[in-house]
Design a protein around this nucleic acid. Structure first.
Lengths: 230, 230
DNA sequence: CTCATTCAACGACTTTTATCGGTTTTCTGT
DNA sequence: ACAGAAAACCGATAAAAGTCGTTGAATGAG
């Protein structure tokens, strides 16, 4: 790959990140100079909860997950990250250590922008600070919903909500890494329980479970279980 | 109360709020002019989830709770607020509706600062934006811990953690409103389960439950149950 | 293609959490 | 001090979630 092509590509990826969308070219160039690109294999850990913060990470390609791990090894997925999304922002803009362990779900390419550059940039660009506030606020909303789900709703309801959220049209496409075990740690439960919940929905004729796709046969029924109010 | 005394008091309360700590006198005065003081009885609802945002609230006296309520009426406490603390910040700095219902746990006095004033102020004072980022980041950290607790830890463990967090020395003082029902909705469970968990700890000789106080007899034992790693 | 591995499926079982019904104790207001 | 209300207490179940052992199907590495 030529050097020009490489820079071109970096610029495009960074520009698409919400944090940087309103920066001028000079600022963007300084971010670009502070950015490092790295490849990860599936399953590989990108950063570890509790460790000091290196910088802001941006997903170029592949899917990742941010998790908390319990003493018994059970994990709770906090976020599933797709290309274009960022992570570790919280640690960058405060002096806290990493809040979650992040691992690749499939072979992925990730950029990392050094913390000091971003902090300096924020001093000069109020728009960046505003963007950070928006992002953090979105995260707070998301986490409140998650607490509400875990505390107030059954596994079956949470599963129904996940399916509706993931659905494109009348079916949910499952990637290779989207196993029932992954779904379980997203829902805050264990694989067996997800399996049984899927079977139950299946027996009720609400969904049809196939290998890499789940068909939604009765969307209204599923919404009722998901407690969607319209 | 004389007008001077009133203003003096307002100024002191506002100045103690983390958001305003670094503002100059002129800015503080404009906040003060946009602030309204109001009294609430115990149980009274101060704001409702989903409604449009009126402004930033500051607790002068009394204790409040911010909750999410499930379809069956069960509630999950997201935050317990004491004098000096603020709420509804998220809605103020984004255009989202209120994220929780807030109610007084005891007779309370609350200030409200109009949203538009704060947004204008943030344009002019970068320190305010930085402070907002810090506060939101703290909230994200807190909520992640809450998700982790609900997903990965048992009620008994959560209770042990609550007791350790509330403890002053070797005992936990309980206010009048801190019933087992309130503890339950903080822990994401129901009153009966809290009662049984307390009884179990009590039978094991780890705590001693009295009228308005819980004594911690075996702090190490409690920490073990709380999964505190040292 | 074959073999080892991972994932899904499933029944039996245990533990945890929630619910129910009722009693006793404590608190509150008069 | 008293009556009524709220909170705590407690045993009995019930329901939900989690665990275990086994099987078979799908996948992918060689």
């Amino acid at each position: 790959m030529s050097n020009d092509g490489f820079s071109e590509q970096a610029r495009d990826i960074l520009k698409a990140v919400s944090y940087f969308s309103k920066l001028d070219d000079a600022a963007l160039a300084s971010v670009e100079r502070a950015a490092i690109r790295r490849d990860y294999d599936a399953e590989q850990v990108i950063l570890i909860e509790g460790e000091p913060c290196a910088g802001l990470y941006i997903v170029e390609s592949g899917w990742l997950k941010a998790v908390r791990i319990g003493l018994d090894g059970r994990e709770q997925v906090l976020q599933t990250l797709k290309p274009g999304e960022t992570f570790n922002a919280l640690s960058v803009f405060t002096d806290a250590p990493n809040q979650a362990t992040v691992a690749a779900l499939e072979p992925s390419v990730v950029w990392m922008v050094r913390r000091d550059i971003l902090l300096k940039l924020m001093e000069e660009h109020p728009s960046l600070a505003r963007q950070v506030i928006q992002e953090l606020a979105g995260k707070v909303q998301y986490l409140i919903r998650m607490v509400e789900d875990l505390s107030l709703r059954s596994v079956e309801t949470r599963l129904a909500r996940l399916l509706l959220g993931q659905a494109e049209g009348e079916s949910v496409q499952r990637r290779r890494w989207e196993t029932q075990a992954e779904m379980a740690s997203r829902l805050g439960t264990v694989p067996d329980v997800v399996n049984r919940a899927l079977r139950k929905l299946s027996e009720e004729g609400i969904i049809h479970v196939k290998r890499h796709q789940i068909q939604i046969l009765d969307k209204e029924g599923l919404k009722a279980i998901a407690q969607v109010i319209e």
